[in-house]
Design a protein around this nucleic acid. Structure first.
Length: 490
RNA sequence: CGGGAUGUAGCGCAGUUGGUUUAGCGCACCUGCUUUGGGAGCAGGGGGUCGCCAGUUCGAGUCUGGCCAUCCCGACCA
């Protein structure tokens, strides 16, 4: 077999890049840090969108759309928010070009300078809360439960396909509530939706938790997160949900009259996941043969490949394949029939393994005689030739089995690579091999700083589902009541 | 922003101390025939401002200077 992928064991980072390119998910663009998402990669995003969108709507949210541009002054209104995003903003200063008559070059027309610069949104809290001011007068206007599917731009110094690009696609939910409790409940509800989505559909086991103050979203009172463990032992933040308190309401003067006729500031949340989830999907499940997709999110679940020699065989094989194809399609399976004859079956086998199609069916002359079909599952690469009459029940079972198997494998990996540590020196040795670490922390940013400087690891979150236990901070030896999740992260 | 590397056909690369012609090779692409159960073979064909600008020279893909761009590794971040 021709080598298309660098082996994971040789160079993990190179393997990841090779995979993204060769599975035809995305390619580099002429713009630094920006990628072109190709049809196959985009169809994955569409599956993510469709599934999440349904979950959002089932929990009472509606979609809307706000502008790409945000007046610079909006950013100045929430002090911590500016501080967090100022260093990575793209800014529009002019609205017209002109042609230099001498050398025919395009120049910026300095007469077309904007009165106020526009920021290309890195996130939309400011423009949305500026709008909510007009929408909210009374407690009867609350809650507002809005989501938007959009692109955002963050001028990051270092980018990686899907994991961190200058422009990326995401959804951002922005909700407004009458009470602190309700907003907090919303933030946790959305965190749970993200966790459910990650585990049930993406088959990625996650740890739900809350960020430490220094890792919080700029402008939030509390940031909730789902953290996943990648195959190379690094953590990936897969989704966040923020309890924004009254910070944006105060910054944008959004008040409502409560039942008692008193003016109060509105409580807020925001939450988002991005195309980074595609990166998470790759880094969690894929192998040296390529992508491995959970059936619940794979744009194509089954591919059928015909095999023949003579023209006579070709006619009969294609006819039978088409019959099988239509039958499965009508049953609602997403299936592709690849009848191209400019590629050999062997080429197709490799290509679809690279693209992670969960089930491959191969049908040839022998099957025609025996009334059989070859079924191969992508996750284990196990092949089986079964009678055609067994195909339907087999597929139903197999898809579920693949979904479970992928999830269980990832879960097992996470569990086997989650370590309890009490000693800092021991931690320093073990972190070199990656993994999740549960350790006591004294709760101070100073200790967090030491951890980061000495080990490059960070506190990913304070897990929601851990019991309190008496202990001593791994670094400062001060008293601590809870273990936190520590890892090196993407 | 620091460190490293690269820029020659769509992709991956070769091109020696400057002078072998019209700048090559593999993959991909087009045509034809034979093939097709794990990335097919043969024959023919198309495709290039050698990243950009300047300089040295009789002569530059090759040497010099400058610029630009991209990728990788760090710090920053979803």
């Amino acid at each position: 077999m021709a080598k298309v992928l660098t082996k994971k064991e040789e160079d993990f980072s190179q393997w990841y890049q090779d995979l993204v390119i060769n599975a035809d998910l995305a390619e580099y663009s002429p713009i630094k840090g920006c990628m072109i998402i190709k049809p196959y990669g985009y169809s994955l995003w569409e599956k993510i969108q469709q599934t999440l969108d349904k979950m959002f709507k089932e929990t009472g949210h509606s979609n809307a759309y706000f502008p790409l541009f945000i007046p610079k002054s909006f950013f100045e209104k929430e002090a911590k928010h500016v501080e967090g995003f100022a260093k990575e903003c793209a800014i529009v200063t002019h609205y017209r070009l002109k042609t230099d008559e001498i050398n025919k070059k395009l120049l910026i027309d300095n007469d077309a300078k904007l009165e106020e610069e526009l920021i290309i949104r890195p996130t939309s809290e400011t423009i949305i809360w500026n709008t909510y001011r007009n929408w909210i007068k009374s407690y009867r206007d609350l809650p507002i439960l809005i989501n938007q599917w959009a692109n955002v731009v963050r001028w990051e110094m270092r980018t990686r396909l899907f994991l961190r690009t200058t422009e990326f696609l995401w959804q951002e939910g922005h909700t407004a509530h009458a009470t602190r409790e309700e907003a907090l409940e919303e933030a946790i509800k959305m965190l749970n939706i993200y966790a459910e989505f990650a585990e049930k559909y993406l088959a990625i086991p996650v740890v739900k938790g809350v960020k430490t103050p220094s890792e919080r979203f700029a402008g939030a009172d509390e940031t909730f997160t789902i953290e996943a463990l990648m195959q190379d032992g690094k953590a990936l933040q897969a989704g966040t949900s923020h309890f924004l308190g009254q910070n944006f309401a105060k910054a944008f003067d959004v008040k409502f009259l409560n039942k008692k006729g008193e003016l109060e500031y509105v409580w807020a949340t925001s939450w988002g996941v991005s195309t980074r989830l595609i990166g998470a999907l790759i880094l969690t499940h894929s192998d040296n043969n390529g992508l491995v997709l959970p059936p619940a999110i794979a744009p194509i679940n089954i591919v059928i490949i015909p095999i023949y020699k003579s023209d006579d065989q070709k006619t009969k094989v294609l006819e039978k394949c088409n019959e099988i194809y239509l039958e499965l399609k009508n049953l609602g399976y997403s299936i592709k029939f690849d009848d191209r004859d400019n590629y050999t079956p062997g080429w197709k086998f490799n290509q679809y393994e690279l693209q992670g199609i969960p089930i491959r069916l191969a049908f040839g002359p022998t099957d025609l005689v025996n009334n059989t079909i070859e079924v191969t599952r992508r996750d284990t690469l196990q092949k089986e030739t079964i009678s055609l009459s067994e195909l339907l029940p087999k597929i139903k079972i197999l898809l579920q089995d693949i979904q479970n198997n992928i999830f269980n494998k990832a879960k097992k990996f996470k569990e086997e690579n989650t370590f309890i540590v009490n000693d800092f020196e021991e931690f320093k040795k073990k972190i070199e091999n990656g993994g999740f670490f549960l350790a006591h922390w004294d709760g101070t940013p100073e200790t967090e700083e030491i951890l980061k400087n000495e080990t490059k690891a960070t506190i990913r979150c304070i897990p929601l589902e851990t019991k309190e236990e008496e202990g001593f901070c791994m670094i400062s030896k001060k008293k601590s009541k809870k273990r936190v999740l520590i890892a090196r992260a993407y």
